[in-house]
Amino acid sequence: ENVVSAPMPGKVLRVLVRVGDRVRVGQGLLVLEAMKMENEIPSPRDGVVKRILVKEGEIDDTGQPLIELG
């Protein structure tokens, strides 16, 4: 899985990584606010952040691509 998608609709509060960062499975990639709760979205695998497809403050839909890993 190279693309991390939104598991729920919500607002992107914080992006915790930058392009080029090495990430490990379970590491937080970004924080979504949904139903007044903050949810940290973890990396599904080890890899390198290739692209960040959303910006802080954006509203996303379920299934929307958020981050691409390489």
Rank of each mutant, 00 (worst) to 15 (best):
V19C: 08
E40C: 14
D21M: 07
V48K: 05
M37K: 12
I52S: 01
A34C: 14
V3D: 04
N2R: 09
V19W: 03
L29S: 00
G70W: 15
G20T: 04
T62A: 14
G57C: 08
V3T: 11
N39E: 11
R18P: 04
T62S: 11
Q64C: 10
M8Q: 09
I52W: 00
R22T: 12
V25I: 12
I52V: 10
T62I: 14
L13S: 06
E1Y: 12
R22V: 13
V19D: 04
E38P: 09
V12F: 00
K55L: 11
E33V: 10
A6I: 05
V31N: 02
P9S: 09
A6F: 09
K11A: 04
T62F: 13
S43M: 02
L69D: 00
G70D: 14
K55H: 12
K36W: 12
L13G: 02
M8C: 12
G26K: 04
V17D: 03
L53G: 02
V25R: 14
L16G: 02
E58P: 11
V25Y: 11
P9K: 12
I59D: 09
D60P: 15
N39Y: 15
I52F: 00
R51S: 09
V54Y: 04
M35A: 12
G26R: 03
V25C: 12
D46L: 04
V31G: 00
P7Y: 06
I41K: 00
M35C: 13
R24K: 13
S43I: 03
M35V: 08
A34P: 01
V54W: 06
V48H: 08
G20V: 03
G10C: 09
E68D: 05
V48F: 12
K55S: 12
D60C: 15
M8N: 08
E68T: 09
E33T: 05
D61K: 14
E68N: 04
L13E: 06
I59Y: 14
N2M: 14
V25Q: 13
L53C: 11
T62M: 14
V17H: 00
V17W: 00
G10W: 00
G47T: 03
G70P: 02
V12P: 00
R51F: 05
G20L: 05
E58V: 11
K55F: 12
